[in-house]
Design a protein around this nucleic acid. Structure first.
Length: 477
RNA sequence: GCCCCCAUCGUCUAGUGGCCUAGGACACCACCCUUUCAAGGUGGCGGCACGGGUUCGAAUCCCGUUGGGGGUGCCA
């Protein structure tokens, strides 16, 4: 039995896990760990989700990916609401018995008509003293007390609400089922939650929840409302128009560590980051330093470019063998792993995501004797200069005479060959590169040729020479 | 409509009344390095929304304006 604070993270399953949710989960997780508390995962039990267990599993998997494991968490789902359904109704009954709630038989149209007549915007408390009991079509409403409700928020300070601006809200529907607000509060009470850290969008509903906690005889938990994540239009990130699924970033080759690090820098800066000149920090540092007091108050734009920069950084930091293993997962099954391992060190520092690996080195895995597909622009640029063709011929000759087929030897041979043409290595390697890889950019050339092997390299060099000679002789392209 | 929140470079932020000639990161630009592309190094561009106060002194405190966002349901 832990005595520390109990944080809860309560996502609703929707088929994908929102990056904003991931950030909130991480903040709760960091706090729970540092304070020796408990991280309670409570997945909402909606009808839709009940028919799609994979949605719930998706949340668990996504959390596991960013280092929050159900084993360490207090896991309460799925079908959570049904588990506590009796408690919801019992609480409603208690509220009614204690006079904190009353029944009302007005329907939506009637409420609207009254509001219009009285010049109000919502429900006017018509049934407060009519002494109605439960019955078909009767909703249970909370009797909002006079006065002011002050929400003491750990990131925003005291926020006060005039209770006159809060109408007597519904607790139980006309069909006898409790609404989410009530269920949520009762669940929190049942699970002895002490700290609620969630997105700012919930702040306006907090006074209602706080009044419910109090009416049910409990002190409200500590509240903390962290800023929302927004898109470039400064609107809350939405599943419909923005790329928000954590799983998608995972599938695109982003690393969990980079994602976690980046997410935590939204609304918060690790202490020491400025002095270090870097915002790249380990989870251990984050966990020991994260404070709600230090969280920003304004919304943050989720910038994929910065995420990508973090990701590239993390990829470069990886030990080589780990990189080979993880990048290897992105490769087609038939690609030779040993060959990949040989070239891996040269592409590790040229990536922003793991997903980009295959396209950078595909030329090493084309079947032998396959025609090379040349990129038109690269070809034109490489063979534009008049020295290009003769140089390529010389290279083929020199490489044919080469004893040691190593990157070092290949480089030296080219340097010798290019000397009479008075061009620099940067220029001279271009036609060779295009001939061998089909493109003008790629991993280091000589290392690539070493890995490719003598036979295939020479074959590509020769067929490129044949192609360029043919086109120069007037056959067109 | 009503209520609530927010406001520092393009973006994320540091800043809690003098240390600010406003610092860092990402992006961008230039140069260096260089085997293309990256990476790395150096430098540069660029910001306290506006108007009033308070104070010897304001990015920092107060008020207002403007702008943005969120909430407001017998949805969750």
């Amino acid at each position: 039995m832990t005595t520390g604070p109990r944080f809860r993270f309560a996502p609703s399953p929707t088929g994908s896990f929102h990056v904003g949710g991931a950030r909130t989960a991480l903040q709760n997780w960091a706090l729970a760990r540092r304070l020796g508390g408990t991280f309670v995962l409570r997945i909402e039990d909606t009808d839709e989700a009940r028919n799609r267990p994979e949605w719930t599993q998706g949340i668990i998997d996504a959390l596991a990916w960013i280092g929050i494991s159900a084993d360490d968490a207090h896991f309460e789902g799925p079908h959570f609401q049904s588990e506590y359904a009796d408690a919801h109704l019992a609480a409603a009954r208690r509220l009614f018995d204690d006079g904190h709630a009353y029944y009302c038989d007005l329907n939506g149209d009637q409420i609207q008509a009254r509001a219009q007549e009285l010049g109000l915007t919502g429900y006017d408390g018509y049934s407060r003293d009519r002494g109605l009991g439960p019955g078909p079509g009767h909703v249970l409403r909370f009797r909002v007390p006079d006065g002011t409700t002050v929400v003491d928020d750990l990131v925003r300070g005291e926020v006060s609400f005039d209770n006159r601006t809060i109408e007597d809200f519904v607790l139980v529907r006309g069909n006898g089922t409790p609404v989410f607000l009530l269920a949520n509060v009762v669940d929190d009470i049942e699970m002895a939650i002490t700290d609620v850290v969630r997105a700012e969008e919930h702040l306006p509903n907090t006074p209602k929840q706080q009044m419910l906690w109090n009416a049910l005889g409990h002190a409200a938990p500590r509240w903390a409302h962290v800023p929302v994540l927004v898109n470039e239009q400064r609107k809350k990130l939405s599943k419909r128009r923005d790329k928000v699924a954590l799983e998608q970033y995972r599938d695109e080759g982003y690393l969990a560590d980079a994602m976690v690090n980046y997410l935590m820098t939204l609304g918060w800066t690790p202490p020491g980051a400025e002095a270090a000149g870097s915002e790249i920090v380990s989870w251990a540092e984050i966990e020991s330093a994260f404070r709600l007091d230090d969280v920003t108050h304004s919304p943050a734009f989720f910038d994929v470019k910065k995420l990508a920069a973090f990701n590239g950084d993390y990829i470069r930091q990886m030990p080589l063998d780990e990189f080979v293993e993880r990048a290897g997962e992105e490769l087609p099954a038939e690609w030779d792993r040993e060959r990949f391992a040989a070239i891996a060190p040269y592409i590790q520092e040229r990536l922003t995501t793991l997903r980009e690996v295959p396209e950078k080195i595909d030329f090493l895995f084309w079947p032998d004797d396959a025609d090379v597909t040349y990129d038109d622009d690269s070809w034109a640029k490489a063979f534009g200069p008049d020295w290009a063709v003769p140089l390529l011929g010389d290279v083929i000759g020199a490489y044919g005479a080469l004893g040691d087929w190593s990157a070092e030897a290949l480089k030296m041979a080219l340097e010798q060959v290019m000397a009479p043409y008075e061009v620099k290595l940067g220029k001279a390697q271009a036609p060779v590169r295009v001939a061998v890889t089909g493109r003008s950019v790629g991993p280091p050339l000589f290392e690539s040729m070493e890995v490719l092997g003598r036979t295939e390299t020479q074959r590509r060099l020769s067929s490129a020479l044949a192609a360029v000679t043919q086109s120069a002789s007037g056959d067109g392209r």
